[in-house]
Protein backbone atom coordinates (compact mmCIF):
# COMPACT_ATOMS: atom_id res chain seq x y z
CA UNK A 1 0.00 0.00 0.00
CA UNK A 2 1.04 3.61 -0.52
CA UNK A 3 1.23 4.96 2.98
CA UNK A 4 -0.86 8.08 3.54
CA UNK A 5 1.36 10.96 4.70
CA UNK A 6 0.63 12.45 8.10
CA UNK A 7 2.68 14.34 10.71
CA UNK A 8 2.58 11.36 13.01
CA UNK A 9 4.61 9.18 10.65
CA UNK A 10 6.97 11.91 9.41
CA UNK A 11 9.83 10.37 11.40
CA UNK A 12 9.27 6.97 9.90
CA UNK A 13 9.16 8.23 6.33
CA UNK A 14 12.17 9.77 4.64
CA UNK A 15 10.12 10.89 1.64
CA UNK A 16 6.50 11.90 1.49
CA UNK A 17 4.81 12.96 -1.73
CA UNK A 18 1.50 14.75 -1.19
CA UNK A 19 -0.94 15.10 -4.06
CA UNK A 20 1.79 16.11 -6.44
CA UNK A 21 1.14 17.11 -10.03
CA UNK A 22 3.71 18.27 -12.55
CA UNK A 23 2.59 20.11 -15.64
CA UNK A 24 5.33 21.20 -18.01
CA UNK A 25 5.67 24.80 -19.00
CA UNK A 26 3.67 24.71 -22.19
CA UNK A 27 0.70 23.60 -20.06
CA UNK A 28 -0.06 20.72 -22.40
CA UNK A 29 1.76 17.82 -20.78
CA UNK A 30 0.79 16.54 -17.36
CA UNK A 31 3.71 14.33 -16.45
CA UNK A 32 2.34 13.51 -13.00
CA UNK A 33 -1.24 13.75 -11.76
CA UNK A 34 -2.17 13.86 -8.09
CA UNK A 35 0.50 11.43 -6.91
CA UNK A 36 0.79 10.65 -3.22
CA UNK A 37 3.18 8.15 -1.71
CA UNK A 38 5.61 7.72 1.14
CA UNK A 39 8.93 5.94 1.38
CA UNK A 40 10.17 4.65 4.70
CA UNK A 41 13.66 5.23 5.97
CA UNK A 42 15.79 2.29 4.91
CA UNK A 43 13.26 1.11 2.33
CA UNK A 44 14.30 -0.29 -1.06
CA UNK A 45 11.71 0.77 -3.63
CA UNK A 46 11.55 0.40 -7.38
CA UNK A 47 9.53 2.76 -9.54
CA UNK A 48 8.35 1.05 -12.69
CA UNK A 49 6.13 1.96 -15.58
CA UNK A 50 6.19 2.29 -19.34
CA UNK A 51 8.07 5.06 -21.13
CA UNK A 52 6.40 8.43 -20.60
CA UNK A 53 4.65 7.29 -17.45
CA UNK A 54 6.34 9.98 -15.35
CA UNK A 55 9.05 7.92 -13.62
CA UNK A 56 11.88 10.34 -14.30
CA UNK A 57 9.69 13.32 -13.42
CA UNK A 58 8.90 11.68 -10.08
CA UNK A 59 12.59 10.94 -9.48
CA UNK A 60 13.48 14.56 -10.24
CA UNK A 61 10.90 15.72 -7.70
CA UNK A 62 12.12 13.23 -5.07
CA UNK A 63 15.68 14.36 -5.70
CA UNK A 64 14.88 18.09 -5.41
CA UNK A 65 15.92 18.62 -9.02
CA UNK A 66 12.49 19.96 -9.95
CA UNK A 67 9.48 21.48 -8.22
CA UNK A 68 5.91 20.22 -8.44
CA UNK A 69 3.25 22.35 -10.09
CA UNK A 70 0.82 21.34 -7.32
CA UNK A 71 1.27 19.51 -4.06
CA UNK A 72 4.45 19.09 -2.08
CA UNK A 73 7.35 16.76 -1.47
CA UNK A 74 8.63 16.32 2.07
CA UNK A 75 12.15 15.17 2.88
CA UNK A 76 12.54 14.01 6.49
CA UNK A 77 9.27 15.77 7.28
CA UNK A 78 10.33 19.12 5.78
CA UNK A 79 8.75 20.46 2.64
CA UNK A 80 11.37 20.83 -0.11
CA UNK A 81 9.79 24.15 -1.12
CA UNK A 82 10.64 25.49 2.36
CA UNK A 83 14.31 24.46 2.21
CA UNK A 84 16.42 27.43 1.12
CA UNK A 85 19.71 25.66 0.49
CA UNK A 86 18.48 22.93 -1.82
CA UNK A 87 22.00 22.39 -3.24
CA UNK A 88 23.26 21.50 0.21
CA UNK A 89 20.38 19.06 0.67
CA UNK A 90 21.24 17.34 -2.60
CA UNK A 91 24.94 17.28 -1.74
CA UNK A 92 24.58 15.87 1.77
CA UNK A 93 21.32 13.96 1.87
CA UNK A 94 20.90 12.47 -1.60
CA UNK A 95 23.16 10.35 -3.75
CA UNK A 96 22.40 10.10 -7.45
CA UNK A 97 23.23 7.20 -9.75
CA UNK A 98 22.59 7.86 -13.44
CA UNK A 99 22.11 5.48 -16.33
CA UNK A 100 24.99 7.12 -18.22
CA UNK A 101 27.17 7.38 -15.08
CA UNK A 102 28.15 11.02 -15.79
CA UNK A 103 31.69 10.57 -14.54
CA UNK A 104 34.15 13.30 -15.49
CA UNK A 105 36.22 11.63 -18.22
CA UNK A 106 39.43 13.47 -17.33
CA UNK A 107 39.40 12.39 -13.69
CA UNK A 108 40.40 9.03 -12.26
CA UNK A 109 37.92 6.93 -10.28
CA UNK A 110 39.50 8.24 -7.07
CA UNK A 111 39.07 11.83 -8.21
CA UNK A 112 35.53 11.31 -9.48
CA UNK A 113 34.43 9.99 -6.12
CA UNK A 114 35.74 13.15 -4.46
CA UNK A 115 33.63 15.44 -6.66
CA UNK A 116 30.58 15.63 -4.33
CA UNK A 117 32.84 16.14 -1.30
CA UNK A 118 33.62 19.72 -2.39
CA UNK A 119 30.09 20.58 -1.26
CA UNK A 120 29.64 18.11 1.59
CA UNK A 121 30.89 18.30 5.16
CA UNK A 122 34.22 20.11 5.39
CA UNK A 123 37.06 17.65 4.82
CA UNK A 124 40.76 18.12 4.26
CA UNK A 125 42.19 16.90 0.93
CA UNK A 126 43.73 13.88 2.65
CA UNK A 127 40.41 13.05 4.33
CA UNK A 128 38.70 13.27 0.96
CA UNK A 129 41.20 10.87 -0.55
CA UNK A 130 40.88 8.47 2.37
CA UNK A 131 37.09 8.50 2.13
CA UNK A 132 37.15 7.95 -1.64
CA UNK A 133 39.58 5.03 -1.21
CA UNK A 134 37.28 3.49 1.40
CA UNK A 135 34.23 3.80 -0.86
CA UNK A 136 35.99 2.43 -3.91
CA UNK A 137 37.10 -0.54 -1.81
CA UNK A 138 33.48 -1.12 -0.76
CA UNK A 139 32.34 -1.19 -4.40
CA UNK A 140 35.18 -3.54 -5.33
CA UNK A 141 37.44 -1.11 -7.17
CA UNK A 142 40.38 -1.02 -4.80
CA UNK A 143 42.73 -1.92 -7.67
CA UNK A 144 41.20 0.44 -10.21
CA UNK A 145 41.30 3.71 -8.26
CA UNK A 146 43.72 5.48 -10.56
CA UNK A 147 42.07 4.46 -13.80
CA UNK A 148 40.19 6.89 -15.97
CA UNK A 149 36.57 6.05 -16.88
CA UNK A 150 37.71 5.28 -20.42
CA UNK A 151 40.04 2.62 -19.01
CA UNK A 152 37.26 0.89 -17.08
CA UNK A 153 34.42 -1.44 -18.09
CA UNK A 154 30.88 -0.03 -17.99
CA UNK A 155 30.21 -2.06 -14.85
CA UNK A 156 33.25 -0.52 -13.17
CA UNK A 157 32.11 2.92 -14.23
CA UNK A 158 28.74 2.37 -12.61
CA UNK A 159 30.45 1.11 -9.46
CA UNK A 160 32.48 4.29 -9.44
CA UNK A 161 29.28 6.30 -9.83
CA UNK A 162 27.76 4.41 -6.88
CA UNK A 163 30.85 5.16 -4.78
CA UNK A 164 30.45 8.82 -5.80
CA UNK A 165 26.80 8.72 -4.71
CA UNK A 166 27.90 7.53 -1.28
CA UNK A 167 30.61 10.18 -0.92
CA UNK A 168 28.81 12.30 1.66
CA UNK A 169 27.08 9.35 3.37
CA UNK A 170 23.57 10.35 2.23
CA UNK A 171 20.57 8.53 3.74
CA UNK A 172 18.94 8.35 0.28
CA UNK A 173 20.18 6.96 -3.03
CA UNK A 174 18.17 7.71 -6.17
CA UNK A 175 19.11 5.59 -9.15
CA UNK A 176 17.78 6.22 -12.64
CA UNK A 177 17.99 3.03 -14.71
CA UNK A 178 21.28 2.05 -13.02
CA UNK A 179 21.66 -1.12 -15.08
CA UNK A 180 20.26 0.31 -18.30
CA UNK A 181 23.65 0.45 -20.02
CA UNK A 182 25.09 -2.71 -18.51
CA UNK A 183 25.23 -6.32 -19.66
CA UNK A 184 23.36 -8.84 -17.51
CA UNK A 185 26.45 -9.93 -15.58
CA UNK A 186 27.51 -6.37 -14.73
CA UNK A 187 23.89 -5.42 -14.00
CA UNK A 188 23.54 -8.30 -11.60
CA UNK A 189 26.74 -7.29 -9.81
CA UNK A 190 25.42 -3.73 -9.42
CA UNK A 191 22.15 -5.05 -7.98
CA UNK A 192 24.13 -7.19 -5.53
CA UNK A 193 25.97 -4.05 -4.53
CA UNK A 194 22.66 -2.21 -3.98
CA UNK A 195 21.44 -5.13 -1.89
CA UNK A 196 24.50 -5.00 0.32
CA UNK A 197 24.35 -1.21 0.68
CA UNK A 198 20.72 -1.50 1.68
CA UNK A 199 21.38 -4.35 4.08
CA UNK A 200 24.61 -3.14 5.66
CA UNK A 201 24.39 0.64 5.49
CA UNK A 202 20.59 0.89 5.79
CA UNK A 203 20.48 3.31 2.90
CA UNK A 204 17.06 4.20 1.49
CA UNK A 205 17.12 3.18 -2.17
CA UNK A 206 14.73 4.36 -4.86
CA UNK A 207 15.44 2.87 -8.26
CA UNK A 208 13.75 3.68 -11.53
CA UNK A 209 13.77 0.77 -13.87
CA UNK A 210 12.27 -0.93 -16.86
CA UNK A 211 13.84 -4.19 -15.82
CA UNK A 212 11.99 -6.88 -13.88
CA UNK A 213 15.32 -8.19 -12.59
CA UNK A 214 15.98 -4.87 -10.95
CA UNK A 215 12.43 -4.36 -9.67
CA UNK A 216 12.26 -7.84 -8.20
CA UNK A 217 15.23 -7.06 -5.96
CA UNK A 218 13.29 -4.23 -4.34
CA UNK A 219 11.12 -4.58 -1.26
CA UNK A 220 8.40 -2.58 -2.90
CA UNK A 221 7.33 -1.75 -6.42
CA UNK A 222 5.68 1.55 -7.21
CA UNK A 223 3.97 1.59 -10.57
CA UNK A 224 3.22 4.65 -12.63
CA UNK A 225 1.00 4.77 -15.68
CA UNK A 226 0.15 7.93 -17.60
CA UNK A 227 1.47 10.02 -14.72
CA UNK A 228 -0.74 8.35 -12.13
CA UNK A 229 0.09 5.82 -9.43
CA UNK A 230 -1.29 2.36 -9.98
CA UNK A 231 -2.51 1.02 -6.62
CA UNK A 232 0.09 -1.41 -5.35
CA UNK A 233 -2.39 -4.26 -4.92
CA UNK A 234 -3.24 -3.86 -8.61
CA UNK A 235 0.29 -3.52 -9.95
CA UNK A 236 2.28 -6.11 -7.98
CA UNK A 237 5.19 -8.05 -9.30
CA UNK A 238 3.14 -9.67 -12.03
CA UNK A 239 3.08 -6.23 -13.67
CA UNK A 240 6.67 -6.70 -14.69
CA UNK A 241 7.80 -8.58 -17.73
CA UNK A 242 9.42 -11.77 -16.40
CA UNK A 243 12.17 -11.76 -19.03
CA UNK A 244 13.41 -8.28 -18.49
CA UNK A 245 11.37 -5.21 -19.35
CA UNK A 246 8.07 -3.72 -18.39
CA UNK A 247 5.71 -3.89 -21.37
CA UNK A 248 5.11 -0.57 -23.10
CA UNK A 249 1.36 -0.86 -22.34
CA UNK A 250 0.90 -2.97 -19.25
CA UNK A 251 -2.12 -4.67 -17.83
CA UNK A 252 -2.22 -2.25 -14.97
CA UNK A 253 -5.18 0.01 -14.33
CA UNK A 254 -5.29 3.62 -13.43
CA UNK A 255 -6.87 4.45 -10.10
Amino acid sequence: MNNPPSPANAEAYLLQVRQVSRVFSDGQVSALVDVSLSIRRGEYAAIVGPSGSGKSTLLNLLGALDRPTHGEVLFGGRSLSAIRDIDSLRACQIGFVFQSFHLLPTLSALENVQIPMFEGPRRSPSERIRKAQELLTIVGLARRMHHLPSQMSVGERQRTAIARALANDPPLILADEPTGNLDSHSGSAILDLFDSLHRERHVTLVVITHSSDVAQRAERIITLHDGRLVPENESGREFLHPQGHVPAVSNSTSP
Binding site: R90, A91, H102, I115, P116, F118, E119
Partner: peptide
Protein backbone atom coordinates in the same frame (compact mmCIF):
# COMPACT_ATOMS: atom_id res chain seq x y z
CA UNK B 1 25.70 20.45 -20.65
CA UNK B 2 24.75 17.01 -19.31
CA UNK B 3 27.90 16.74 -17.29
CA UNK B 4 27.36 20.13 -15.67
CA UNK B 5 23.72 19.18 -15.08
CA UNK B 6 24.95 16.05 -13.29
CA UNK B 7 27.35 18.13 -11.17
CA UNK B 8 24.46 20.40 -10.20
CA UNK B 9 22.35 17.30 -9.43
CA UNK B 10 24.95 15.88 -7.04
CA UNK B 11 24.95 19.13 -5.13
CA UNK B 12 27.40 21.53 -6.74
CA UNK B 13 26.24 25.07 -6.17
CA UNK B 14 25.86 27.51 -9.04
CA UNK B 15 28.84 29.43 -7.63
CA UNK B 16 31.03 26.33 -7.83
Amino acid sequence: TQEIGALRAIGWRRSR
